[in-house]
């Protein structure tokens, strides 16, 4: 058995990057990121001396949207990368070359992940430069953390989407899988609030900040919620003050827990994707 070939992995990643960087959704998302950063910064600056708000307030305003948009683009790029190519016949040709399935899988992940990272870096990076030039570069470490965590969120959802793509026989079924993943990130918070009420909690308790630890800790079951919590930590925030209520982020959700949970969300689907892809008849 021959060894792993990094050159093949690089070749696949480069091809995925070239093939997807011109994807209209990616271009649209990059432009949207720039617009959103500037709009949210403008909104955050309302009522203050400056036209634009600071980095932290801008990012916190944007967090809910970015935690949906990044998964969305990752799912769009990844949901059919294996099932679609297997169906079209493109994968037949690639697999007739001296390349292993693991190299294809990782190459796709890195190539598509680079596309998302590129979009995040351009979109949020340019937006960050505009804020830094107008308001000043306060909280730049947090902002840098926000960009890195946004890129990693893209990789996590790519890993999930590729896993679905490796499992589903047909492109149409992997669309269904992609939708389920997206809706999980979309409705998870609402589901947990429903569980909180079912467990005897009330809206008044929620607004009063009387939230049980298990509710907070349940963010580990949602990569998007983990991302939001991690970004807040990156800005050094320990108490969330939003929509008229104030709650402290529990100590349990420290950096090791947040990062290791995100790494698990990234690694488990990836290992499963390899398992499905290796066994798959193309």
């Amino acid at each position: 058995m021959d060894g792993f070939n990094f050159k093949s992995l690089y070749t696949i990643a480069k091809k995925e990057f070239l093939d997807n960087i011109r994807n209209k959704w990616v271009i649209l998302l990059t432009i949207l990121f720039i617009i959103l950063i500037i709009v949210f910064s403008y909104v955050a600056g309302a009522g203050s001396e400056d036209t634009f708000g600071g980095m932290q307030s801008t990012v916190f305003g944007l967090l809910g949207i970015s935690s949906l948009l990044i998964p969305l683009i990752a799912i769009i790029l990844g949901f059919s990368t294996i099932s679609g190519e297997a169906e079209s016949g493109a994968l037949n040709v690639v697999l007739s070359y001296p390349v292993r399935r693991i190299e294809i899988l990782l190459g796709k992940l890195i190539g598509l992940g680079t596309v998302i990272s590129f979009s995040v870096l351009i979109g949020f990076g340019l937006g960050g430069i505009v804020i830094a030039m107008t308001v000043g570069p306060e909280s730049w470490v947090g902002y840098f953390g926000f960009i890195l965590l946004s890129m990693f969120l893209g990789f996590i959802y790519l890993s999930l989407a590729i896993c679905v793509s490796a499992y589903c026989k047909r492109r149409i079924t992997s669309i269904g899988g992609g939708i389920i993943i997206f809706f999980w990130s979309l409705i998870y918070g609402t589901v947990m609030i429903a569980v909180l009420y079912a467990a005897g909690g009330s809206f008044q308790d929620f607004l009063g900040g009387k939230i049980p630890d298990w509710f907070f800790n349940s963010v580990v079951f949602s990569p998007s919620d983990l991302y939001q919590t991690a970004v807040q930590r990156a800005f050094g925030v320990v108490t969330i003050e939003q929509a008229g209520f104030s709650v402290a982020i529990p100590d349990f959700l420290d950096w090791p827990v947040l990062l290791s949970s995100q790494i698990i969300w990234f690694m488990v689907p990836l290992v499963l994707a390899y398992f499905f892809f290796k066994r798959r008849d193309i």
């Binding site: 016949g89 493109a90 037949n92 001296p98």
Partner: peptide
């Protein structure tokens, strides 16, 4: 891997990357 270094394959439904 060795086999595929010296092999050319054209599938029934050939498809390439559209972009």
């Amino acid at each position: 891997i060795k086999i595929k270094n010296d092999l050319g394959f054209l599938p029934e439904r050939v498809s390439f990357y559209e972009n």
